[in-house]
Amino acid sequence: MTSVLFYLFSAILLFAAFRVISAKSAVHAAIFLILAFVTTSAIWLLLEAEFLAITLVLVYVGAVMVLFLFVVMMLDMNMEPLREGFTRYLPAGILVAATIVFEMGIVLGGRYFSSENFPAPVPHGSDYSNTKELGEQLYTTHLFSFEVAAAILLIAIVAAIGLTFRRRVESKKQDIPHQHRVDRNDRVRMLDIREESVS
C-alpha cells in the first residue's frame, strides 16, 4: 500500500516539476510548483517526517508561493525572450544532462548503495514525536549552526532593505510632529490691501 502511494506521488511530483519548467505562462508554472510542494510533503509523510511535511505546506505553499504568485501576477512578465534559443541550446543541454545522469547512475546504482548496506529503518511507535526530537537536536547538537542561520536571515533582511529601499521624494507620508509645530505664519499670509476708490 505504502509503495503504491509512493509511486503515485512520485509520478505526480515528476509531472509537476516538469510542467514548472515547460509551462507557457509564469502563473501556471507557479501553480505547478505548488503541486510539486504538496506532493513532496505527502512523500515526506510516508517517510514519517510529519513536522517537516507540515512545515513545507505551511511555509512554502502557504506563505512563499502566495507571495510569489502575487509578484508574478503584478509583474506581467513576458516569457517569450526567456525561451529564445531553447532549441539551439537543447542538444548541448541534453548531452550534459545525460552524462550527469549516467555518472550518477554508476555511483548510486553501485554496490555501496545496495539495499543490503542500507536496511529499511524500523518504524517508530505512535508515542514517538519527531517534532520534539527535531527541536532537541536543533537546540543542542546544532545550536551553533542554528545561530549562524539566524545571522544569515538577519543579513538577508539588511541586504533586501539596503538594495530596495529608496527615500521617495514624491512620497505623501505625513510628518506628524512637523504638522503639530506649524503656526499661523506658515499657512496664512496677511496682505495689506489698500482700499481703492471706486470711480
Partner: peptide, 25 residues
C-alpha cells in the same frame, strides 16, 4: 569543523558580498 557550519559560514560570507557588489544600484 563540520560540513554544516562550513556551508553556513560560506553562505553568510557570500550573501554579504553579493549585496555589497549590488549596493551601487
Amino acid at each position: 569543523h563540520s560540513f554544516l557550519t562550513l556551508y553556513l559560514g560560506l553562505e553568510l560570507m557570500s550573501l554579504s558580498m553579493y549585496a555589497m557588489v549590488a549596493l551601487q544600484r
